Every structure is written in structure tokens, then in C-alpha cells.
Computed example of a mutant assay.
Amino acid sequence: MEIISNEKNKLSRQSSSFRLRSPSLNTLRLHRIFDLFDKNNDGFITVEELSQALSRLGLDADICELKPTIESFIKPDETGLRFDGFEALHKTLDESFFGGDCECDGSPDSDLEEAFNVFDEDGDGFISPEELQKVLKKLGLPEAVEIEHVEKMIVSVDSNHDGRVDFFEFKNMMQTVLVPSS
């Protein structure tokens, strides 16, 4: 678990925006992340796929340090992490890095603000096409290649037609794609 001690200091200095805080949204978010990391869509995330994904997100971890930790969550005779192993790995890392305690109030708006802040890199209260493109590139998504595609994504949720997404537009968009918990 040397990776935990090495990365803990780095993570404690970074924003906790990527931390999944709301239990009602964790599974949905984790499934989306799992699908992004599973590049060949075989239902498994290999150590290599996870390492590449972390590198794209700017979390350059040594694969030699990652491998034993990840492999401890891979079931015998399987080539990588299934979703349940990925979820268990996330929970363990969350507890190790953040103590498993949630510092937020757990409200839906709090979760949305955290997500919004991931995209709003300059903190001006708006998501510009360039900011969206940067995040999409970090995730290795093909939509990030051409700014025209990114601008179309912005236009699709930009209700006041100012060429950028404010928090209320972001919230409206998220409410149409997220299923409320019961």
C-alpha cells in the first residue's frame, strides 16, 4: 500500500472535486468512470487501462506501485477489475485518502457545485468551450478533438445564448440526465 502513502500527500493538496460524495450518485458516476476507463469495452479494467486513465487525468502513478494494489481487487482467473472490484477499490482509496468522511452537506446542489467546479477551471462561474475541451481531453474523449464539437455541446445547454454554461444551465442539464434517488 505504498501507493497510498505516496499519493495521499498529492491528493490532499488537490481539490476534492473528483471525490464522489453523494451516495445516491456514486454508482451512476462510478459506472460512467468505469466505462471510460474500459477502453476495449470488455467489462474489465486492466492495470494498464487504469494507469493510462490516471495519467490522462494528470495523476501520474508508477505502474509498479499501482499493480499490487489493483491486483488485490481482481478476482482469481480474471484479466482485470470488474465493476464490483472497481467499486471496492474506489471505496478503499476514498477511506485511505479522505478518511471516508464527507465534508459536504450532501445536498444535490452541493454535489452539482462540486461537479461544476471540475469544469470551471478558472473559477469565473462559467464553463467555456475551452474549459470543457480541456476536461474532455484529460478523459481521452474523441469529442475533445475539434473545438466545433465542443461548442455544439455548449450550445445544446446554453439557454441564454452567451456561448458558455453557467451553474443554472449546468444544473438544468444534469437534472435531465440524472435519475433522482428514491
Score class of each variant (00 low, 15 high):
residue 103 E to W: 14
residue 158 D to E: 11
residue 165 V to S: 03
residue 161 H to D: 13
residue 50 L to K: 03
residue 135 V to P: 00
residue 179 V to R: 12
residue 51 S to Y: 14
residue 130 E to T: 11
residue 107 S to K: 12
residue 103 E to Y: 14
residue 128 S to W: 10
residue 83 F to I: 06
residue 45 I to A: 00
residue 71 E to G: 04
residue 86 F to L: 06
residue 58 G to N: 12
residue 123 G to S: 04
residue 152 K to P: 01
residue 24 S to A: 08
residue 146 E to T: 12
residue 156 S to L: 02
residue 73 F to C: 12
residue 124 D to M: 06
residue 155 V to F: 07
residue 158 D to N: 10
residue 33 I to S: 06
residue 130 E to Q: 10
residue 76 P to D: 14
residue 46 T to P: 13
residue 11 L to S: 06
residue 4 I to V: 15
residue 102 C to Q: 13
residue 152 K to M: 00
residue 162 D to E: 14
residue 102 C to M: 13
residue 165 V to D: 00
residue 129 P to V: 00
residue 113 E to F: 05
residue 118 V to I: 15
residue 181 S to F: 12
residue 121 E to R: 06
residue 57 L to W: 07
residue 175 Q to N: 15
residue 125 G to E: 05
residue 123 G to Y: 02
residue 130 E to S: 15
residue 56 R to D: 01
residue 138 K to A: 08
residue 44 F to W: 11
residue 100 G to A: 09
residue 110 S to K: 09
residue 156 S to K: 13
residue 61 A to I: 14
residue 75 K to T: 14
residue 23 P to G: 01
residue 21 R to T: 08
residue 99 G to E: 01
residue 25 L to A: 08
residue 56 R to I: 09
residue 61 A to Y: 09
residue 128 S to K: 08
residue 117 N to L: 11
residue 76 P to E: 11
residue 30 L to K: 05
residue 74 I to W: 05
residue 70 I to Y: 07
residue 116 F to C: 02
residue 49 E to I: 03
residue 130 E to M: 11
residue 8 K to I: 10
residue 153 M to I: 15
residue 116 F to D: 00
residue 57 L to T: 08
residue 118 V to H: 09
residue 15 S to T: 08
residue 97 F to I: 04
residue 127 I to C: 08
residue 145 V to K: 03
residue 79 T to K: 09
residue 12 S to G: 06
residue 122 D to F: 06
residue 25 L to G: 11
residue 8 K to R: 10
residue 128 S to P: 09
residue 136 L to A: 07
residue 138 K to P: 00
residue 43 G to K: 00
residue 124 D to L: 07
residue 135 V to G: 11
residue 72 S to P: 02
residue 68 P to S: 09
residue 101 D to E: 15
residue 173 M to F: 15
residue 50 L to W: 00
residue 58 G to R: 08
residue 53 A to Q: 07
residue 5 S to N: 14
residue 48 E to R: 03
residue 170 F to A: 10
residue 107 S to E: 01
residue 51 S to R: 01
residue 108 P to H: 01
residue 170 F to G: 09
residue 33 I to M: 05
residue 18 F to S: 05
residue 96 S to R: 06
residue 107 S to Y: 00
residue 121 E to F: 09
residue 48 E to T: 12
residue 147 I to M: 13
residue 32 R to G: 02
residue 7 E to L: 13
residue 134 K to I: 15
residue 182 S to T: 10
residue 96 S to V: 12
residue 105 D to Q: 04
residue 153 M to H: 05
residue 111 D to L: 11
residue 127 I to H: 00
residue 130 E to W: 09
residue 28 L to R: 01
residue 173 M to A: 12
residue 62 D to P: 10
residue 147 I to D: 04
residue 175 Q to K: 11
residue 120 D to Q: 00
residue 104 C to D: 10
residue 113 E to Q: 13
residue 99 G to F: 03
residue 155 V to G: 02
residue 92 T to M: 07
residue 147 I to Q: 01
residue 23 P to D: 13
residue 18 F to I: 06
residue 141 L to V: 15
residue 39 K to H: 04
residue 182 S to K: 02
residue 95 E to S: 13
residue 62 D to T: 11
residue 62 D to A: 03
residue 5 S to A: 14
residue 149 H to C: 14
residue 125 G to C: 01
residue 78 E to R: 12
residue 42 D to A: 04
residue 167 F to R: 02
residue 34 F to M: 02
residue 131 E to H: 03
residue 62 D to E: 11
residue 1 M to Y: 08
residue 125 G to H: 10
residue 154 I to N: 01
residue 154 I to F: 06
residue 37 F to I: 05
residue 98 F to Q: 07
residue 155 V to M: 05
residue 137 K to Q: 03
residue 179 V to Q: 07
residue 3 I to G: 10
